[in-house]
């Protein structure tokens, strides 16, 4: 074989092999599907509409078998009160599962604080839940593959597989994970996967009389929730962590963390 022929056939062989391997990689159907599925759950919270009744928290606890008296919850509602003096006061007694029925704001060690009505500038409620992040920090730190993201964007915990190491609880920037006092595994909002997979709504969204909490499919341009997220001014919590949270808020401001 002449040198020229050898170089020619070598070049053909190498480029041929390279193309066929890259073609296989490009056309892995599972990856293509995962990147462009027609369903990606998202959540929308309207903080103007929330009145702090806490029915969402109660409904979530009952629906998902989280003991009512245990000091853990998958969702909770925070109260923010800003004063003319520039103070930012916030509380969430029992995660607001009994609602807000007092003007006194729980300041932990410094006791209950009463703010005079005329001193209040802004005051509102912010419901919190798992953000079902696109790049979930809690999932990446799991050493055993017990927590994961589904193709439709829900972060779940495999109770049979979880060893209870607690890395995910520390890893979540939003503090939405906790130890389940009965199951003894890490626990978190499942976005009521059992309900939404059958075409239902999450228990919290269904329990909300004011429509402050809504579930939607972010990949469907005709979905009313997706439309709001695409066209209105919405915010997410702690975007600086780079986890791409998929729970959007209307009426968020910088005091909310």
């Amino acid at each position: 074989m002449k040198r020229r022929e050898f170089m020619k056939s070598a070049a053909v062989f190498v480029s041929g092999v390279a193309v066929s391997i890259s073609a296989l990689e490009l056309l892995d159907p599972q990856e293509v599907l995962a990147k462009n599925p027609d369903l990606r759950w998202g959540f929308l919270v309207d903080t103007y509409k929330c009145v702090g009744c806490g029915m969402c928290v109660k409904a979530c606890k009952i629906e998902n078998d989280i003991p009512l008296e245990a000091n853990v919850t998958r969702t909770w509602v925070e109260r923010y009160v800003m004063t003319k003096q520039g103070e930012v006061l916030k509380d969430s007694p029992d995660g607001a599962q009994h609602g807000y029925t007092s003007k006194l704001i729980d300041q932990n060690a410094s006791g209950m604080k009463k703010v005079a009505d005329e001193d209040i500038t802004q005051a509102f409620f912010v419901p919190k839940l798992c953000n079902h992040c696109e790049l979930a920090a809690c999932v990446q730190v799991c050493p055993v593959g017990a927590t994961y993201s589904t193709a439709d964007g829900v972060v779940l915990v495999d109770r049979k597989w979880c060893i209870g190491c607690g890395y995910c609880i520390m890893g979540c920037p939003y503090g939405v994970r906790f130890f389940h006092p009965v199951e003894h595994t890490a626990d978190k909002c499942t976005l009521c996967y059992h309900r939404i997979s059958k075409g239902g709504d999450t228990a919290c969204a269904q329990a909300c009389p004011f429509g402050a909490r809504k579930l939607g499919n972010l990949r469907d341009p005709n979905d009313p929730v997706a439309k709001i997220i695409l066209t209105q001014r919405v915010g997410v919590l702690r975007p600086e962590y780079g986890t791409k949270p998929q729970c959007y808020y209307i009426g968020l401001n910088e005091e909310v963390r």
Partner: peptide, 13 residues
């Protein structure tokens, strides 16, 4: 849960 008067100017409450 809904009908205690609270001063929440930025909320439907």
């Amino acid at each position: 849960r809904c009908h205690v008067q609270l001063t929440m100017p930025s909320s439907q409450r």
